[in-house]
Amino acid sequence: MMKRPSFKDLPLGKDDPPYSAWGLYGPKDELGALNLLTEEVVKKAAEENIKTGVRISLNLPLDVFKDKPFFNRQVFHKDLYPKPPRNVNDDVWHFNTQSSSQWDGLRHFGYQAPRKLAFYNGVTMDDIHAEGSTVNGIHAWSDKGIVGRGVLLDFDTWRRKEGIEYDPFKTSPIPLKYLKQIAEAQGITFRSGDILLTRTGCTKTYLAMSPEERVQTASPNPVAAGGVEQSEEMVEWLWENEFAAVGGDQPSFEAWPTQWKEKDFLALHEVILSGWGMPLGEFFNLEELAEHCQKTGRYTFFVVSEPCNVIGGVASPPNILAIF
């Protein structure tokens, strides 16, 4: 595998946006950080982590936010109808691909003003909306999937033991020093190609709410939510650990709205998605996973996720399993 440049060498192009790695895998690449998931990396992850055959879904139901989706997205809707005279049923689903558990794709969130307005590898909004364009579509990820070693950092359990207050529905940045302490406490050593998952207790908190509380929580736009901190140190840590993908149980993997004032309110979404081409997962269901990790003392596992094969799609349900 090629050696990646160090963080201090970013951006790779002198006129490219902050921390970007455009061209690292070629000017037409649409896999980004998934290039780290080589056959050797996936084989080793499977051999080391599939031991018992226990399988745990990390998907929330597609209609989980039926009371009020976050970010003013559309509600999932299902039409079920019979097909007489045969004893047959069909159904039709209508949904926003980001209205439940999701992978954000490379068409979703580009670099924002005052920076160069572009998506991964310099793709522009005009490029994406050109007739017949498929560039940076989610279909590129469905071919081989997002498959490798998953690592859970269970912030919610750790912070309760440490007596740290945290509200997942306030703009509550989780400091990088906490993630490092959790990794040490769980005995985690990261390696290239890991799929990082952070559990904040967000979905657990949401599911315990009344319908009225859910509507109130999801109605503000932008929504207030906890997540990892926005900082240059966090970006460096994510890059140097060579994660293939990141995700969590939050509305936004990072604390939202962004608090990164040093770089004109630069968001991690900009760097992760548009700078590196790294899948960014949100609203994953990590409750059963966390329970199993605590029970077994294992915080690494095999991840299998296949985004939907929609040509030119922006995002996708993850269709994701953790296998032990």
Rank of each mutant, 00 (worst) to 15 (best):
W276V: 03
G281I: 01
E270W: 08
V123E: 04
Y25I: 01
G248V: 04
K68S: 13
E40Q: 14
S274A: 15
S57Q: 10
E48V: 00
S99C: 10
W158K: 07
T52R: 15
T205A: 07
P61G: 00
P257A: 11
K144N: 15
K180L: 13
P317K: 09
N35R: 15
P318I: 04
L153Q: 01
R191C: 07
P84V: 07
A225K: 04
S172H: 14
L80T: 07
S133H: 08
L238M: 13
P114L: 10
V235G: 02
E254V: 09
L268A: 13
Y25L: 05
Y25W: 15
A315P: 02
R107W: 07
W276Y: 05
L179C: 03
V235H: 05
P82C: 03
F284W: 09
T189Y: 07
L153T: 00
K83C: 13
Q74R: 15
E233G: 10
P5N: 00
L280R: 08
V135K: 14
A140I: 09
S99P: 00
V64W: 06
T38E: 05
K51L: 13
K68Q: 15
K14D: 14
E213G: 08
P27K: 13
N72L: 01
K43V: 11
G247W: 01
Y111A: 05
R214Q: 15
S219Q: 12
K180A: 09
G150V: 05
E162Y: 07
